[in-house]
Amino acid sequence: MVEELRAVSLVDAVAESLRLAVISGTVESGAILTEQFVADRFSVARTTAKAAVERLVTDGFLQRTVHRSARVPVLSAADIGDLYDTRILLEVEALTRVAQRGEVPAEAEQRAAEVVLFAERGDHDRMASSDVAMHRALVEAAGSPRLTRMHATIMGEAHICMVQVQHRNLLHARTINAEHRAILDTIAAVDPVAAAESVRSHLVRARDQLLARYRELGNRTSSTEAPES
Score class of each variant (00 low, 15 high):
S76Y: 12
S29A: 10
V57M: 05
A137F: 07
H67D: 13
N177T: 12
V104K: 11
R207V: 09
T224R: 10
S201R: 04
A141M: 02
V66T: 13
D125R: 04
R68L: 14
V92N: 06
A99K: 05
V165H: 04
T65A: 15
E114A: 00
I23T: 04
S129I: 04
Q209I: 07
E114R: 07
A108M: 05
M134R: 14
F42M: 11
A182C: 06
M1T: 02
D208T: 09
R41A: 13
D123H: 03
A78D: 12
E3N: 09
V199R: 08
H180G: 08
R174I: 08
H202P: 02
L10V: 11
L170A: 04
L18Q: 11
E109Q: 00
I88N: 01
L62D: 12
H202C: 03
V74C: 15
T186A: 10
L147W: 08
A113V: 02
R168V: 03
S223C: 12
A152L: 05
V139N: 03
A158M: 10
S130K: 07
R41N: 12
A212T: 10
T86D: 12
V53P: 06
T34V: 09
G218T: 02
A13G: 15
S76K: 10
K50N: 09
T48N: 14
H124E: 10
L117N: 00
R215I: 07
M127T: 07
A189K: 15
E114V: 00
E93H: 07
S201F: 03
S222P: 09
T96K: 11
R111V: 04
M162Y: 01
D40W: 05
H135W: 06
V57P: 08
N177F: 14
R149Q: 15
I23P: 03
D85E: 15
V193D: 15
L5V: 10
E140K: 06
V165T: 11
G25N: 12
V115C: 10
S201Y: 01
N219D: 13
A158I: 02
L184H: 08
A195N: 12
N219S: 14
L171K: 03
D125N: 00
E114K: 00
R205C: 09
A212R: 05
V193C: 07
Q209V: 13
A31V: 14
H67I: 03
S144Y: 10
Q63V: 05
S24N: 12
M127S: 07
V92E: 15
L147R: 09
L56Q: 09
E197I: 01
P145R: 07
Q209P: 01
I88G: 01
V98H: 03
S223Q: 14
I88W: 03
H159V: 00
V8M: 08
L203W: 06
A188F: 09
A7G: 00
P192Y: 11
S222Q: 13
V11K: 08
A206V: 11
S223D: 15
A194T: 04
A77R: 15
R101K: 12
P73R: 02
E225V: 14
L20T: 14
L56N: 11
A99W: 05
M150A: 11
V165P: 02
R205P: 02
A226K: 11
L75F: 11
D131T: 00
G30R: 02
A194N: 08
R46D: 14
A13W: 15
A31S: 15
R213K: 03
A196F: 07
H159P: 02
A178S: 10
V204G: 05
I187Y: 09
H124C: 05
A182R: 08
S129F: 10
T96R: 13
D185M: 02
T175I: 01
H159N: 06
